[in-house]
Amino acid sequence: MSADDELGTGEAAPDLLTLHESIADLFATRGDWRRAYRHLRSALDIARAGSLRDPLTSSYNRRYLDQRLPELPAAVAVALVDLDRFKSVNDTYGHLLGDRVLCRVADLLQEGLPADAFCARYGGEEFALVLPGIDHRGAVRVADAARRRVARHPWSELRPGLRVTISVGLAHGTGSGPRQLHRADNLLYAAKRAGRNKVAFHDRETAQVITHSE
Rank of each mutant, 00 (worst) to 15 (best):
V78N: 08
R159P: 00
P73S: 12
L108Q: 12
V76Q: 03
A36I: 05
A117E: 07
G175M: 04
R35W: 05
V150E: 07
V89S: 06
E125N: 04
H39N: 11
E205A: 15
G195I: 04
A194C: 04
L181H: 07
P160H: 12
S2G: 11
S176G: 13
E125I: 09
L158T: 05
D32F: 03
T92R: 15
V140H: 02
I210F: 11
T165F: 11
D4A: 14
L162M: 06
V140P: 00
Q110L: 00
Q208Y: 00
G8F: 08
P114C: 07
R41W: 01
L19N: 07
L80M: 14
T174W: 02
D32A: 08
T18A: 14
R62V: 08
D107T: 15
E111R: 10
E157L: 13
A184N: 03
P178H: 09
A190H: 10
T206V: 12
V105R: 07
G8W: 07
L83S: 05
V199I: 08
T92M: 04
G123K: 02
A191G: 09
G112Q: 00
G177P: 02
T174K: 05
A24N: 08
T29G: 01
R35N: 14
S42A: 14
R63K: 06
A184F: 05
D203N: 13
I23M: 12
A151S: 12
H95C: 06
R141F: 03
T29A: 12
P70G: 10
D5G: 00
L19H: 13
L97H: 04
A194Y: 04
A24R: 11
N197Q: 12
R163N: 11
A145D: 15
L96C: 00
T165S: 15
T92C: 06
A79F: 01
T174C: 02
R104V: 02
C103Q: 14
D15M: 07
A143V: 10
E71T: 15
Y64P: 01
A117V: 05
P154H: 12
K192F: 05
Q67V: 01
H182T: 12
Q180V: 01
G175F: 04
G177C: 02
H20L: 04
P14M: 06
A194E: 07
H39V: 04
D15T: 09
R85C: 06
G124I: 08
D32L: 08
T174S: 13
A139L: 10
E214I: 01
G124N: 09
D203S: 14
R30G: 02
E71K: 14
L96P: 00
H202P: 00
P114R: 07
A12R: 12
A3E: 12
S22C: 09
S51K: 11
G161K: 04
L188N: 10
H202R: 10
R34S: 13
A120V: 05
A3R: 09
L158S: 10
S42W: 00
G112L: 01
I210R: 14
D15Y: 07
R35D: 13
Y64D: 02
D203T: 09
A13E: 10
G169V: 07
S213N: 09
R147N: 06
N186W: 01
S88T: 09
L26I: 00
I134G: 05
H172R: 11
S59C: 14
S42H: 08
Q208T: 13
R152T: 11
R137C: 06
G98E: 09
D91V: 03
R121T: 05
D135Q: 07
G138D: 10
E126K: 09
E157Y: 02
F86D: 07
K87I: 00
N61Q: 06
S58D: 15
R196L: 11
